[in-house]
Design a protein around this nucleic acid. Structure first.
Lengths: 257, 257
DNA sequence: TTGATCTGCGTATGTGGTACGCATAATGGC
DNA sequence: GCCATTATGCGTACCACATACGCAGATCAA
């Protein structure tokens, strides 16, 4: 039952620093790190769809199949890319500090991370987090709650809640084209003839297909958005939701304090 | 500038009921509805990866290319599948009712929807919602907030917040294998020799790769999870986060009078 | 009836993930 | 120092899949 097999793919174990290089055999000409870095370079420059095994292999100057000595499948490469894109989490507040301040910082750091690597938002989720940096982020988040009296499972749910908000918001924001740096596949933001999308294209399209009488509430929002309320500082909308989440957590924490 | 082009794909416009059938030409032998239903059938029975254009075509007794008379690309088919899976939203509370009660119902309905169609969680997001049912869900959610004094953009953020929580939670829960009905691609939950995953496999794997001294907070959560706290009723964890979200919103709503 | 128009779909193309197996390189044991 | 052992790089497939293109036949306006 408790033997040493983790059930995790070898490349993930390698990312954890397990799996020392075997004694016999030729030295590896590549490294996981280089491959992952190449994948990130491609994704950053040309978007996630451009990341194919052969494209990444070309980037490191190897053949396609050489990569499979380092990762078991493309999914693993993508997972490792996301992990590397996150990088190590920001340092924790001194223990005993304000949990709200800490979680807020943590959320902002995650936001900045995914905005620097928008492609990471498009990587299909294949399972719960198992890579070192992701776990390290989780660790930092949980530590922020160390001074509270929440149960362990509640802390986990709380972190999940905050992180979920950040990722969802970032995804929608990049979807709406309100942010730079999300090349769909090939072209830059305004490489074609059309003017750069200012984020209203979505609402305009909606206005044309929607019956205002059937959808009065959506119509009201739509009008407000087209009138430009709040779009002058799109981060203000992020702050709004984040404060809501933290308020909700605070209600609970104080109730236990 | 405001001509009649929506910029949306024809199949999406068709889902909105625009685009009457042209007068000339043979009658279509298929329909969007049938194609989408076939896609859902395949996804439900064999998982999202099994949904290929040829597989869906076989399901409706047509050739692969016939589908392209109805949808412009596979992405559109997936979007329409998700829309159909959501279906119409639950009926709104009588106007003026309690917003919290309404939003809570709304969140539960969404949860039940995605648990009935777990594959929908795996459909890659390609843009903001533009399909009729998705907009209808948005409408219902916004209406719940009709009795509050929130600004329009705040209402939108609020709905995004709640929906984001539901979807993230459902995704993680299905990832952990705690739920039935998520066939990865081919096999049922326990088709191979191994016993059905009770949801602890993830935590056990983590325990083996993680250094407890570097990750004390994660280790604490892990121990609690392995000890079985809360896993007896996995929906309790959903409730926890949902109540946090609603509490946070309530703080704001009450602050506005 | 005739021609415009639209449908179903056969064919073909390109791309991408990945199984398999061989030649080659490094190492440990003798 | 020689050889069995063990890894590595990678060439060669294979297969699945999305989708461009174009033709034949159906359908209806005139």
């Amino acid at each position: 039952m408790s033997d040493e097999s983790t059930g995790l793919p070898p490349s993930i174990e390698a990312a954890w620093g397990l799996r020392d290089r075997p004694a016999r055999g030729p030295k590896p000409g590549l490294s996981l790190k280089r491959i992952v870095a190449a994948g990130i370079a491609v994704a950053s420059a040309e978007g996630l769809p451009a990341v194919s095994m052969s494209r990444v292999a070309a980037e490191v100057g190897a053949s396609t199949m050489a990569l499979y000595r380092y990762v078991g499948a493309k999914d693993e490469l993508l997972a490792l890319m996301v992990d590397a894109a996150y990088g190590p989490p920001p340092q924790a507040e001194p223990p005993g500090g304000d949990w709200r301040e800490g979680l807020s910082r943590w959320a902002w750091a995650e936001l900045h991370g995914v905005l620097r690597h928008p492609w990471a938002l498009r990587v299909p989720i294949t399972g719960p987090p198992v890579t070192p940096n992701q776990i390290a982020w989780l660790e930092q988040g949980l530590r922020c709650l160390g001074s509270t009296k929440l149960a362990e499972s509640e802390k986990l749910s709380t972190i999940l809640l905050v992180s979920g908000y950040v990722l969802r918001w970032a995804t929608l924001a990049t979807d709406l084209g309100e942010l730079p740096g999300t090349p769909g596949a090939e072209a830059g933001p305004e490489a074609d003839g059309k003017p750069a999308d200012d984020g209203t294209a979505y609402w305009q399209a909606l206005a044309k297909v929607m019956d205002p009488e059937r959808f009065p509430a959506v119509t009201a929002v739509l009008k407000a958005e087209l009138a430009g309320e709040g779009s002058d500082d799109f981060l203000a909308e992020f702050v709004f939701g984040l404060e809501r989440v933290l308020d909700g957590i605070e209600v609970l924490v104080k109730g236990r304090g």
